[in-house]
Simulated assay, not measured.
Amino acid sequence: MTATTTSPATTATGIDRSLPRLGQGFVWQDLHVGQRMRTFRRTITETDLVQFIGVTGMLEAIFIEDGYEGAAMPGRPVPGALTYTLIEGFILQTMIQGTGLAMLELHQKILAPVQVGDTIEALVEVTAIHPTSRHGRAVVTSRIDVHNQRGAMVMTYTATRLLAGRD
């Protein structure tokens, strides 16, 4: 029987902490102004709408009543907040997972309606990076343009976040 040795980076659970982590987001040093990325696509379902309005309390007639007679358009519109949170979910899961420290500021414009059955995706562009004086962090600003399956821009927003850096 051979004894095993552990490296200084190995924890009591046997996981070597020096190995790269799958799904780890970007530290600010890995980004540059003008860098562009796109998110995955996501088709919004009736279940997404029902669960979202149930959790948030957005029980407005246009969202809860199919065929609401006072609606400005046919179909099943979804709250702009649902569109925003789905895109932010993609960004969280990929770009800032484990490195995003805080959302500092958000400016948003909703340009066109999104309905159940629409497929959305976003283009993310890094527009500014400002390193801070504390712990290698930086304030990173991005413009996020959300498009539907027809290529129409349905939302645009600018997000300013605090991101971790390398020590």
Rank of each mutant, 00 (worst) to 15 (best):
L162I: 03
A12G: 13
G23R: 07
L86G: 03
L86H: 08
P8S: 11
R38F: 06
G165H: 11
T56P: 13
L111S: 08
A102W: 08
A122G: 07
R76K: 01
T39H: 04
R161M: 05
F26V: 10
A159T: 04
A102T: 07
R21P: 06
H147M: 08
Y84W: 13
G57D: 04
T94K: 05
A3H: 15
A71Y: 03
Y157V: 02
I87E: 01
K109W: 07
Q24W: 11
G117M: 12
G57Y: 02
M58K: 08
R134Q: 12
S18P: 11
G67I: 15
G34T: 04
V126F: 07
G165F: 12
Y84C: 11
T132F: 01
H147K: 10
Q149L: 01
R161W: 01
S18I: 14
H32R: 09
V140G: 05
T127Y: 05
Q108G: 00
V154C: 02
T132K: 01
M37Q: 14
R166Q: 04
G80S: 01
G136E: 05
G165S: 10
G100Y: 09
Q97E: 11
T43E: 08
P20R: 05
Q29N: 08
V146A: 00
Q35F: 03
Y157G: 09
G117Y: 12
V154A: 02
T2W: 09
I120S: 12
V33Q: 12
G70A: 12
D16M: 11
F63Y: 14
D48F: 00
R42D: 00
R166K: 06
G54E: 11
S133E: 14
V114F: 01
I15W: 10
T99A: 06
F63D: 00
V114C: 08
M73F: 12
Q108E: 08
D167C: 03
L82G: 02
V124A: 05
L104W: 05
R137F: 04
E65A: 14
G98W: 02
A3Y: 14
A122Q: 13
S7K: 13
T119E: 10
G57V: 01
I129Q: 03
H147R: 12
A159Q: 09
